[in-house]
């Protein structure tokens, strides 16, 4: 199967000499849910900008569904839907008009444009707001409007640049559900995010970019497997003594009922429970600290610095 996106030796230098991309290569398979991570200024948005033609590349090759952008960019653009980081619609235009116009720019006839606009505005909970000027929408609604706009020509590759930045938790979860749904329906999704929890929850494959280089490119599962340690938070029924600890493990008493335990590679969580049992401490629940990837991300980024 042809990859949804292939990038080979992609580079970008700005007029002031700053090299934003230093020859990166990566491939995203069709149907994938792919995360592009990196600190601010790492080159994520530049990469996305080149793929969707908002940034001119200095060198390298970008192929979208088998179409080289240097050979037939308009054909490649038809495969791509883009949700940028910043709001980039006319705030005086009505919600429905913004989506219908975008369909028009892709040459969709009026009846199909209207039908799909209704479909995506309904799916994203914006149909009731269709006659409202877009400036009246909340931040979360504006993000959903950009998703509806990006989907109206039904692209096979959807690229989202920090789609849940500044969105409340409930809205973020519903956005995740929506993205999972369209991914399950066959749309390849590339996501940049600062929320590593988001990448872990949604994505199958991941690339970490830093200083214009790809410093990691693997599956999320492999990446998590390579973590040297995991941190668990145990909620205990009884009050923990002030100086409570577990032999052989790094622990931290967060409060009288909450214990944080670090489990290094090669150690077993069963040993923790055995010791807790012997000490008469009953655990009511246990959770994994959500920032497992964050630790690896920091290590990779600092290692490459």
């Amino acid at each position: 199967m042809i990859p949804a996106l292939t990038i080979e030796n992609l580079s970008k230098s700005y007029d002031n000499g700053f090299q934003a991309l230093k020859g990166i290569s990566l491939s995203v398979q069709q149907g994938d849910f792919f995360a592009l991570l990196g600190p601010n200024g790492a080159g994520k948005s530049t990469t996305i900008g080149i793929i969707c033609s908002l940034v001119s590349k200095s060198g390298g090759k970008v192929v979208v569904h088998g179409v080289d952008i240097d050979e037939d960019f308009p054909a490649a653009k038809k495969f791509i839907g883009i949700v940028p980081q910043e709001f980039n619609f006319n705030v005086f235009e009505k919600v429905e008009d913004i989506v219908i116009n975008q369909a028009g720019y892709y040459g969709l006839p009026a009846d199909i444009a209207r039908e799909r606009t209704e479909k995506y505005l309904k799916e994203l909970g914006l149909w009731d707001k269709r006659d409202v000027a877009s400036r009246m929408l909340s931040g979360g609604m504006k993000r959903r409007l950009m998703i509806a706009r990006a989907l109206v020509h039904e692209p096979r590759l959807l690229i989202l640049d920090e789609p849940t930045a500044g969105v409340d938790i409930e809205m973020r979860r519903s956005m995740w559900d929506f993205l999972r749904k369209i991914n399950a329906a066959g749309t390849t999704i590339i996501l940049t995010t600062h929320y590593l929890e988001e990448a872990e929850a949604l994505c199958r494959n991941i690339a970490i970019i830093n200083h214009g280089n790809i410093v990691e490119n693997s599956s999320v599962r492999d990446l998590v497997r390579r973590l040297h340690r995991e941190v668990f938070i145990l909620d205990c029924v009884d009050e923990l003594p002030e100086s409570f600890s577990v032999d052989g493990f790094v622990t931290r008493r967060m409060d009288e009922h909450c214990l944080e335990v670090e489990v290094e590679k090669g150690q077993h969580i069963n040993d923790v429970f055995a010791q807790l049992d012997r000490a008469g401490v009953q655990v009511s629940s246990m959770r994994n600290r959500a920032n497992r990837l964050e630790e690896m991300f920091v290590n990779l980024v600092e290692g490459a610095a």
Binding site: C52, F73, A75, N88, Y106, R149
Partner: peptide, 10 residues
């Protein structure tokens, strides 16, 4: 930046 709507289109 709404010009980007056109620039990203074919």
């Amino acid at each position: 930046h709404s010009v980007e709507e056109l620039l990203v289109s074919p």
